[in-house]
Amino acid sequence: MRYDVPIIFRRFESGSYDPDTGDYADDTYVDTKVYGSVMDTNTQTMNLVYGGIKQGSLTIHIQNHMDKTFDQIIIGDKKYRVDYTRRLRTKQSFIVSEVQ
């Protein structure tokens, strides 16, 4: 298994209130980049997780655990949401589906 695909875990942070100016700061994104193994989700796993076939579903494996909170995953130019995750002893796997 090759861990050669860049995966970005993105967290959304809303702007905080500045009492001196009376304005809110701009919203920002905090990105954490790791490398992982990305493959299509097999049919048996899709039936188990979704109850049927779902287009755009991927299985991701990373070598360590992702302990930071995140809202979405970005691979290439596509955004994904986590449908199922599993923490193993030294690795973590995600089953994700594409969002618009």
Results as ranks from 00 to 15, higher is better:
residue 1 M to F: 03
residue 1 M to N: 01
residue 2 R to I: 09
residue 2 R to M: 10
residue 2 R to L: 12
residue 2 R to Y: 10
residue 3 Y to D: 04
residue 3 Y to A: 06
residue 3 Y to S: 07
residue 3 Y to F: 15
residue 4 D to K: 10
residue 4 D to T: 11
residue 5 V to A: 06
residue 6 P to D: 09
residue 6 P to G: 03
residue 6 P to C: 04
residue 7 I to Y: 01
residue 7 I to V: 08
residue 9 F to Y: 15
residue 10 R to F: 00
residue 10 R to T: 07
residue 11 R to E: 15
residue 11 R to L: 13
residue 13 E to C: 06
residue 13 E to L: 11
residue 14 S to E: 14
residue 15 G to I: 08
residue 16 S to W: 15
residue 16 S to Q: 12
residue 17 Y to Q: 05
residue 17 Y to P: 02
residue 18 D to C: 04
residue 18 D to L: 06
residue 19 P to L: 08
residue 20 D to P: 00
residue 20 D to C: 01
residue 22 G to L: 12
residue 22 G to Y: 10
residue 22 G to V: 07
residue 23 D to E: 15
residue 23 D to W: 13
residue 24 Y to M: 08
residue 24 Y to S: 03
residue 24 Y to C: 01
residue 25 A to K: 13
residue 25 A to E: 14
residue 27 D to V: 03
residue 27 D to T: 06
residue 28 T to R: 14
residue 31 D to P: 05
residue 31 D to T: 04
residue 32 T to H: 11
residue 34 V to P: 07
residue 34 V to K: 13
residue 38 V to G: 02
residue 39 M to N: 11
residue 39 M to F: 06
residue 39 M to K: 14
residue 40 D to S: 11
residue 43 T to W: 12
residue 44 Q to L: 12
residue 45 T to N: 05
residue 46 M to K: 15
residue 47 N to C: 05
residue 47 N to G: 08
residue 47 N to T: 06
residue 48 L to G: 02
residue 50 Y to I: 02
residue 51 G to K: 02
residue 52 G to E: 10
residue 53 I to H: 10
residue 53 I to G: 01
residue 54 K to Q: 10
residue 54 K to T: 07
residue 54 K to C: 01
residue 54 K to S: 02
residue 55 Q to M: 07
residue 56 G to M: 12
residue 57 S to F: 02
residue 57 S to D: 04
residue 58 L to A: 04
residue 58 L to W: 06
residue 58 L to E: 04
residue 59 T to Q: 13
residue 60 I to C: 02
residue 60 I to S: 01
residue 60 I to V: 10
residue 61 H to F: 15
residue 61 H to M: 13
residue 62 I to L: 04
residue 62 I to E: 03
residue 63 Q to H: 09
residue 63 Q to P: 04
residue 63 Q to V: 07
residue 64 N to V: 08
residue 64 N to R: 14
residue 65 H to W: 15
residue 65 H to P: 05
residue 66 M to F: 05
residue 67 D to Q: 12
residue 67 D to P: 00
residue 67 D to C: 07
residue 68 K to I: 13
residue 71 D to E: 08
residue 71 D to I: 02
residue 71 D to W: 04
residue 72 Q to A: 06
residue 75 I to D: 07
residue 75 I to V: 14
residue 75 I to K: 04
residue 76 G to M: 11
residue 76 G to E: 10
residue 77 D to P: 00
residue 77 D to R: 13
residue 78 K to W: 01
residue 78 K to H: 11
residue 83 D to I: 01
residue 84 Y to M: 07
residue 84 Y to C: 00
residue 86 R to E: 13
residue 86 R to A: 06
residue 88 L to F: 15
residue 88 L to C: 01
residue 88 L to A: 09
residue 88 L to D: 09
residue 89 R to F: 15
residue 89 R to V: 12
residue 90 T to E: 12
residue 91 K to G: 01
residue 91 K to P: 00
residue 92 Q to S: 09
residue 92 Q to I: 08
residue 93 S to W: 00
residue 94 F to S: 02
residue 95 I to H: 07
residue 96 V to T: 03
residue 96 V to A: 02
residue 96 V to S: 03
residue 97 S to C: 08
residue 97 S to F: 07
residue 98 E to Q: 14
residue 98 E to G: 00
residue 99 V to I: 15
residue 100 Q to E: 13
residue 100 Q to R: 10
